[in-house]
Design a protein around this nucleic acid. Structure first.
Length: 501
RNA sequence: GUCUUGUUAGCUCAGCUGGUAGAGCACGUCACUUUUAAUGAUGUGGCCGAUGGUUCGAAUCCAUCACAGGACACCA
């Protein structure tokens, strides 16, 4: 640690400052304004005589991002969370000896400083601060990355996110938007009368989705626990208990592959709404998007990569219909297992021939339709085999009252009228057990306690999950989930590399 | 998990078919009181991701490993 020669050099400066009786980690900040406020409040200075106002005094703080020393005067650009400010520092405006002995010798890019002075506009027309006091608050002993190119190495950016945030303004902005999205989501549902709840993250049975869980062990109880793959079954127990509108915004954990759209822990909102159906969910989803766009002040047409997504154009189409009209699959094969298998093989798709009709239709959808759904599209009427927790359609019991929302070729939300028939739910779980035995290791787990909860009666309810990470990707035009997660999952470095570091 | 590309100074990157390791920024020293990626001069800085192999000679060719990016597979 701290072997690097540049770090050594800076540590020496710290020692030197201490010897001179100057605290390099001072704790008595007198900051009385932020940079953006300073710039706003003093915008009128350029109309004043000599373009300055020596009667005003401000103390700002921030990190030095650029430093230009020109003999007896210098320009320093400092940055706080709100913005960047240029500061003019002249030898003769500071206490005797400070400029030459402290400032020029011991202050560097990366240091966090505090400066008091008055506003003025430079010859080149930039509103700046004319320093009369200068204080080092925190010495930075590791040098910052290059001032112009910043830091581009993705590995360093993810492993040392703080450096990424220091150097890349757009990154800070992305995470501000993420925070806004979560806050707005919370407000939207609260305003609709939903109650925010917290359900367990450690489950005795990993239920509510098809996914491999992380396993951990509870010592006191002597039992294994699973990090939750979805909160669904607990939220529905709350509906049984009499809460009529609940939501939870939190992490789910899935022990599966990682790629541009999958991180082992990810954030979703799930909400459940009693006395409503999936049709109501379509309406509230449209409203939710409208609310987000309004409050984030986004245009209704957003670029995403080389696509353009029109968020004023929500479409609704049943899955079977989408196979033919969007996927171009011949109409006469979509209800025939053998013909689907043949068709998939014809198109070089590896297919498990044992799959039932519903699952095969799902294959067709994944292969030929999904990526073509650019503008927001609700795909409805999923086969019952694909939806073990969804209510059957009254008109056609082979279908469920369900939709998935696709945007920019990607699934953003999943929703359905909830299955509340306990006997049907039990037999669906049993069906999943069979699927598990015949090799589908991601089939749902049996949850008898949940079935028992349903047996007391759950009001007709509609529920929905929205992937927050993917939603933020969409809104910020980011194409890797790692770019919307502050600390994405990374493999640990070897101990050798860590000690070297 | 498979394929593929990458890993060279604190950072951003050159380094071709093997022949003593380069630039810019940063840092040190000097000059400079309105610059803004300041400028000019000058200097320091490297186990070329790790380990083996081929070769008189390897940053460069080969193999294995580690980590990362991308694609695919898996995955609501």
């Amino acid at each position: 640690m701290f072997k690097n020669k540049f770090v050594q050099q800076r540590i020496e400066k710290v020692e030197l400052l201490k010897k001179k009786g100057y605290n390099p980690y001072s704790n008595d900040s007198k900051r009385n304004t932020t940079i953006s406020k300073y710039l706003k409040v003093n915008a009128d200075v350029e109309h004043k005589e000599n373009k300055r106002d020596e009667h005003r005094h401000y103390t700002v703080g921030g990190r030095i991002k650029l430093l230009r020393i020109m003999g007896k005067a210098s320009f320093v650009n400092i940055e706080d969370e709100s913005g960047t400010l240029q500061v003019y520092i002249a030898r003769d405006n500071l206490p005797e000896g400070f400029y030459n002995n402290i400032f020029k010798k011991n202050i560097e890019v990366g240091d966090i400083v505090e400066i008091t002075g008055y506003p003025f506009v430079t010859g080149k027309g930039e509103l700046s601060l004319h320093a009369s006091e200068f204080k080092l608050l925190t010495k930075s002993i590791s040098p910052l990355p290059e001032k112009f190119h910043g830091i581009t190495d993705k590995e360093i950016r993810y492993r040392k996110r703080y450096l990424d945030l220091i150097m890349n303004k757009e990154v800070r902005n992305t995470f501000k938007i993420r925070s806004r999205v979560i806050s707005l989501t919370r407000h939207f549902f609260e305003e609709k009368g939903f109650l925010e709840v917290e359900t367990p993250m450690m489950h005795p049975i990993a239920g509510g989705a098809n996914a491999k869980p992380f396993v951990t062990h509870h010592n006191a109880l002597g039992v294994d626990r699973y990090l939750r793959i979805a909160p669904e079954l607990y939220l529905k127990r709350l509906i049984v208990g009499g809460f009529e509108a609940v939501f939870e915004i939190n992490r789910n954990f899935r022990n599966e592959g990682m790629d541009a759209t999958h991180n082992p822990e990810f954030t979703s909102i799930e909400f459940y709404w009693a006395y409503k159906t999936y049709k109501d969910l379509i309406e509230i989803t449209k409203e939710y998007f409208q609310y987000l766009f309004e409050h984030l002040d986004l245009p209704t047409i957003l670029p995403y990569g080389d696509m353009e997504v029109d968020f004023s154009d929500f479409k609704e189409i049943p899955l079977a219909e989408s196979l033919t009209t969007i996927g171009g699959v011949p109409k006469d094969i979509i209800n025939d297992r053998e013909k689907i298998v043949a068709y998939l093989k014809e198109h070089d798709v590896d297919v498990n021939e044992k799959l039932n009709l519903g699952l095969l239709q799902g294959e067709l959808f994944d292969e030929f339709v999904e990526e073509k759904l650019i503008n927001p599209t609700f795909i409805t009427e999923y086969p019952v085999e694909l939806s073990p927790l969804a209510r059957r359609s009254d008109e056609n019991p082979e279908l469920t009252e369900r939709f998935e929302l696709f945007i920019a070729g990607r699934e953003i939300a999943n929703a359905f009228s909830e299955l509340n028939d306990p006997v049907d739910q039990l037999s669906r779980f049993e069906g999943q057990m069979d699927a598990k035995e015949s090799g589908d290791d991601e089939a749902h787990e049996m949850d008898q306690d949940f079935v028992e909860a349903l047996s007391y009666g759950m009001a007709p309810t509609a529920g929905q999950g929205i992937g927050i990470d993917r939603l933020v990707m969409l809104l910020t035009n980011e194409h890797s989930i790692r770019d919307v997660l502050l600390f994405p999952a990374m493999k640990p470095l070897s101990t050798e590399e860590i000690t070297k570091d």
